[in-house]
Design a protein around this nucleic acid. Structure first.
Lengths: 339, 339
DNA sequence: AATTTTTCCGGTAACGTTTGCGTTGATTTT
DNA sequence: AAAATCAACGCAAACGTTACCGGAAAAATT
């Protein structure tokens, strides 16, 4: 079995002590330039890499961070992960990804698991099924650096980054109104999520700004967030069964968009409806019915989240003034509902 | 800052030595049943978890494995990852995911990085851009357990698992022929990939079994595997520009299917073509033109790959007889090309 | 020329865990 | 009853690194 080179091997070969070699590799000023060069050259020659376990044990840092998302198969999250990884990688951090599948239990277990594997920090997008945050507050109080992204929560004071959901929903609604649609229904995600209330509020504000009435009956919350097709089908059936049918549909998430389209594609007269929905799918433009969509800057959100976490982890002193960054989304309008 | 409980804390509290506590936690028979129970109870009470860094250092194992895929945003891979994680998690392994984006350089760097972070094993799906395998053989010769999945290679003797691509392509082609399509074009992935040749061979064999001629001009290889739209557009234009136009299209990967559909959707008379393509997308049935598709058992492949890797990592003696497991895919036929 | 400072390096201990070996007292064997 | 066995535990070393504490030689200061 292969045995990796250690600092001792270098020390023995070059006639230095292990401490000098260690310092040389860390570029300490207590080692002469020539010695540093000698050590580094030889280290490279014999393909030396510091043993991460030993380094972790000594420094009580693991140089790995944990990421909690609902599902990697979700385009938004996989794009976010790409952003996270690009920053993490260049800063020398490993990324351990876990999925909640929007279930509270999975979230709690996985986060516990991550914390006990001594990750140096956590990047969390809350599961839709979570209403009790104690498993996270516990870790936060212990001093574990945590950054929330996408689905953020108010209860914990730390860095957060998400789409400017209010603005995105506001703009999209205004766009629908400008195009002449005044009765706009809203298919919402689980109500406990930050992204849900922000988006609903943006929608409400847009209606108000255009002196249109807000009708409770036009808003349908989907607690499973599109995971259960029936929930979405029922919501749409309910809307289309209304005496005064809506002219347009605002769909508040990627999962919901897919589910709604699937539900609508089985109906005959879906072409009457103007549809705009959140989606980061790379094939959204190929799907019919052809919808307008709001695309989040997922990659940027990932990058920013990771940068925030690094700031938190590497800060020598405790940080008290936290920032919640809002990233703009992009709206793509499609007039043509038939392909 | 929070300080986790250690074995010493337990030892001190209970009046045992650290070694006894360690052995008790490992269920050693050299410790009495009562002592074991006492230790475990107290450990649970104070929320003790063994320090992974110390354990890794001592046992020279990290209890984490590395996964190399082209892209987590790809449905097939994200489903595979779900399979991998489900097995890994229950066996106490961490999963570190990296992406090659089908680039040789990224693959080489990431694999090197993973190996130096002392993962206990590697799960690899080859990048389309890779033709030189030395970065992997090097690690394999050192004794690092490696399992290939999906895009496997012949050069390295180890466990492998992939879809029965020959059979899937054979069956799909036969199906097209049965439906009356005799001139079937083939849009293939990068030729150096195992999945490419297997699928092409299945297609050829099906033609031969039905006494149909194989025409080189009907097969178009896409070296970027659908990452570059133009490549696919050119391939399709080439096929449709043929004096004797094909009646059906066989598309050999998910990425290619998406790209092809995008290319076709811009043309007017795509309804003449029967299309069958590999895809694991969860919205493939909503996309138009509406195509038939071959869906791989991605989750199973992930599970099997992880089980193979565990067998390899935890075997006390070197293993010499390796298995290459082929998993059946499922074919979904769609007669209706218009939505 | 004597003193102080600086440069450069080594020794040692520690991080938390596991393991081979040794020790003790109790139990079994002849 | 002496010898052998065994159960249950402690001691100490080791995994590879880093950091504190020194110390000697060289350089800089009086």
């Amino acid at each position: 079995m292969f045995k990796a080179a250690t600092i001792k091997d270098i020390a023995k070969e070059l006639g230095f002590s292990a401490s000098t070699v260690s310092r040389a590799l860390l570029d300490s000023h207590e080692v002469s330039i020539e010695t540093r060069k000698k050590v580094k050259d030889y280290a490279k020659k014999i393909n030396y890499y510091s043993n991460p376990a030993a380094r972790s044990l000594k420094n009580s840092r693991s140089y790995s961070i944990g990421v909690m998302v609902a599902d990697v198969a979700n385009s938004f999250f996989s794009q976010t992960i790409n952003g996270i990884e690009s920053v993490a990688y260049e800063k020398g951090y490993h990324v351990i990804i876990t999925q909640s599948h929007d279930l509270y239990e999975r979230e709690a277990i996985n986060i516990e698991h991550l914390a006990n594997s001594s990750v140096d920090g956590l990047l969390i997008s809350m599961s839709a099924g979570t209403t009790d945050y104690s498993h996270i507050t516990k870790l936060h109080e212990r001093g574990l650096p945590i950054v929330f992204f996408d689905r953020i929560i108010d209860d914990i004071k730390t860095f957060k980054v998400t789409t400017d959901n209010f603005k995105a929903a506001f703009d999209a609604t205004v766009l629908l109104i400008k195009k002449g649609y005044e009765r706009i229904a809203f298919i919402a995600n689980a109500p406990q999520l930050s992204i849900t209330s922000d988006r609903v509020n943006g929608y409400k504000a847009a209606l108000e700004a255009n002196s249109l009435p807000f009708e409770e009956s036009l808003v349908k919350y989907c607690f499973a967030g599109g995971r259960i097709l029936d929930e979405v089908t029922d919501a749409i059936d309910g809307l289309l069964g209304l005496p005064d049918k809506p002219q347009a549909l605002f769909i508040a998430s990627d999962q919901l968009s897919k589910a709604s389209i699937r539900a609508l594609s089985k109906l005959s007269h879906h072409n009457d409806l103007a549809i705009i929905g959140f989606s980061n799918s790379d094939v959204i433009d190929l799907i019919s019915p052809h919808i307008s969509y709001i695309k989040q800057n997922a990659f940027s959100i990932g990058e920013i989240a990771m940068q925030m976490l690094i700031k938190l982890m590497e800060s020598k002193y405790p940080i008290y003034n936290f920032e919640t960054k809002l990233v703009d989304a992009e709206i793509y309008w499609n007039d043509n509902f038939d392909l």
